[in-house]
């Protein structure tokens, strides 16, 4: 069973994502902040990481950079899940090391398939740059 780590500080959204992904047969792990997420990712080595960008203390960009510094996670799919706010947010997420980007509010019908698509496309740092 594929393991997905969700780093999300909003309880309702976390529940929603967990529900949708578990419904599709994924094993879902979660962390409510960046620090916990990084630690869990290091021990869990998940098949994908869903990362909220607007996180308390350490924001998603920082978390993504930190995750990429771990050689074991260098090519793991990291998908930013965030509300499109200001121009350049998506570019910033990609530059920080994210390999995918899903805009909030999520479409419950499409969400799982979007995640799966990004999981197939392994992160290739050089290819993205």
């Amino acid at each position: 069973m594929k393991k997905i780590l969700v780093i999300e500080d909003n309880e309702q959204n976390l529940y929603l994502i967990r529900y949708i992904l578990e419904d599709c047969g994924f094993e879902v792990f979660s962390a409510m902040d960046g620090k916990g997420g990084i630690e869990l990712a290091a021990s869990l080595l998940p098949d994908a990481i869903l990362l909220d960008i607007q996180l308390p203390v350490m924001d998603g960009y920082e978390v993504a950079r930190s995750l990429r510094r771990n050689p074991d996670l260098a090519d793991a799919p990291i998908i930013a899940v965030t509300s499109y706010a200001m121009p350049g947010d998506k570019e910033k997420a990609i530059q920080s090391g994210c390999s995918g980007y899903i805009e909030k509010p999520i479409d419950p019908d499409m969400f799982a398939s979007q995640v799966q698509a990004y999981m197939q496309k392994r992160h290739n740092k050089r290819g993205n740059e």
Partner: peptide, 22 residues
């Protein structure tokens, strides 16, 4: 403020729309 408001408003909407859909 705009970025924050966007996030703050969309975050609850995300679960409203999401759960309604489910």
């Amino acid at each position: 403020f705009l970025a924050t408001m966007s996030h703050e408003l969309r975050t609850p909407l995300n679960s409203i729309i999401g759960f309604t859909g489910i």
